[in-house]
Design a protein around this nucleic acid. Sequence first.
DNA 1: GACCAGATTGTCT
DNA 2: GACAATCTGGTCA
Length: 219
Amino acid sequence: VTHRKNRACTFIFDAKWLLIAVMPLPLEFYQARTATVARRLLGCVLVHETAAGLAAGRIVETEAYLSRNDPACHAHNGQTLRNAAMFGPPGRAYIYFIYGMYHCFNVVTAREGVGEAVLIRALEPIAGIPLMQQRRKTDVLQNLCGGPGKLVLALGITPDQNGQPLLKGALRMEPPEWVQGHSAPHPKNIVTARRIGITRAADLPLRFYEKNNPHVSRR
DNA sequence: GACCAGATTGTCT
DNA sequence: GACAATCTGGTCA
């Protein structure tokens, strides 16, 4: 992968993908209904640039967490120190520590003060694959970003990025067109299912993933 | 493939 | 003190 950068945009040339310069997703994207945002995020590209290099993946699995009638949501019992970023402006990162070992990455949605977010559960690796392999300590492509804890490690996302805006900067969300020739999945290829790893409100259909994509965490 | 135990610690009750 | 939006590596089929 070669990587060139100027003031306005970033170009990446890869044997498999041609990445083109477009604008990151705008604020309005995140202000729709949270389940809608979760669905629309499929196909979008999460990018992280660090000193070690650039890593990026196409989103293939998400979950929505709602402020009302959703006891599985961290915001369900109101604002605390931990979930404060969820109540902040939309279009920003909400990163939390889980199971004593891992971090999960979310995108804040709706409006400031509401407390809703979309958990990014799986990515299809697009750029910086050697870097991801190094960070994940495995060469198996399907094991790089197929889970919320895994993709945080693969992209080198750190908890100090909690609350950071995703509209610009090192950690950002790009539209599907960021990868030339690619677009959002066709609606008929989006599967709606129950969320994973929760006990409360486990029956709500708030998980979305791309049908037959091998990078999805669980089928 | 399915199922299960163990790791490990911040957060909230 | 219980629990958690997880992952890994083991067993068994």
